[in-house]
């Protein structure tokens, strides 16, 4: 497993205090990505074997307070599904709570979820053409996964990055699409655009006016309220 960053975070990457591993390599090329250094697998920092990673996670147990555990994010955590499943299974066996953050593009996502206690999945856009323009990938698998997850009845935390010029004016479309499916066990979260990763891109950064205003956020909140979709803030 190729890890380009690790560290603890409280509540923003799953419940409680969590050890977050950033796995290198991503199949999307989101123009606003705050971890562009994790897009390429070649930009790796450390190679972890399953045993090394599990041993480290076990040694970190004193800090998994308030229901914390291990979260895999990226890059894209699910690119190497088999390897990820092995590690997740071993962590579960060690009594460690597991979570992943994913862009939802893995055809094996439902298989992986057998070892995941807490799922966070991005849903960046319902419009495939716009999605492809801004991220390099169209979203049919994401939608399939969303459908499967909602129909399975399992918990899922869907995160929507709100970016002006990309999706921030499409509140109604999001609410309509997402509410077509059973959402009793789904919570949504709006992640307002930020530029924490801008410096890493240097001159290659292309988003020029990504910040969302209060009206845009309120439009999402109202549309989601209207469709009975529950949203949270972490």
């Amino acid at each position: 497993m190729q890890i380009f960053q690790k560290g603890f975070n409280f509540s923003q990457d799953g419940p409680g205090n969590r050890l977050v591993y950033h796995i290198a390599g991503c199949n999307m090329r989101c123009l606003w990505c705050s971890n562009p250094e994790g897009m390429q697998e070649s930009n790796t920092h450390t190679t972890y074997s399953k045993d090394t990673l599990v041993a480290e996670a076990i040694s970190c147990k004193p800090l998994f307070f308030d229901g914390g555990g291990v979260t895999f994010t990226g890059g894209e955590a699910t690119l190497h599904a088999e390897e990820l499943m092995e590690v997740l299974q071993a962590l579960k066996e060690a009594g460690i709570h597991t979570a992943i953050e994913t862009n939802g593009t893995s055809p094996k996502l439902m298989e992986i979820l057998a070892y995941v206690d807490y799922l966070m999945m991005d849903f960046k856009h319902y419009d495939d053409a716009i999605l492809k323009k801004f991220t390099g990938l169209e979203g049919s698998i994401i939608k399939e996964n969303y459908a499967a997850i909602t129909q399975s009845g399992r918990q899922c935390h869907i995160r929507i990055p709100l970016i002006n010029g990309f999706n921030a004016d499409h509140a109604q479309g999001f609410a309509e699409f997402l509410s077509k499916f059973p959402t009793d066990n789904i919570v949504f979260e709006f992640l307002k655009y930020h530029e924490f990763g801008k410096e890493k891109w240097q001159s290659a950064y292309q988003i020029t006016d990504g910040f969302v205003n209060e009206e845009q956020l309120a439009a999402f909140q109202q549309a989601f309220d209207k469709h009975g979709l529950i949203y949270i803030e972490t």
Partner: peptide
């Protein structure tokens, strides 16, 4: 360089 959690674990 790995953040507060790791530093706390060493310290403890």
């Amino acid at each position: 360089s790995n953040g507060l959690g790791f530093r706390m674990l060493s310290n403890m």
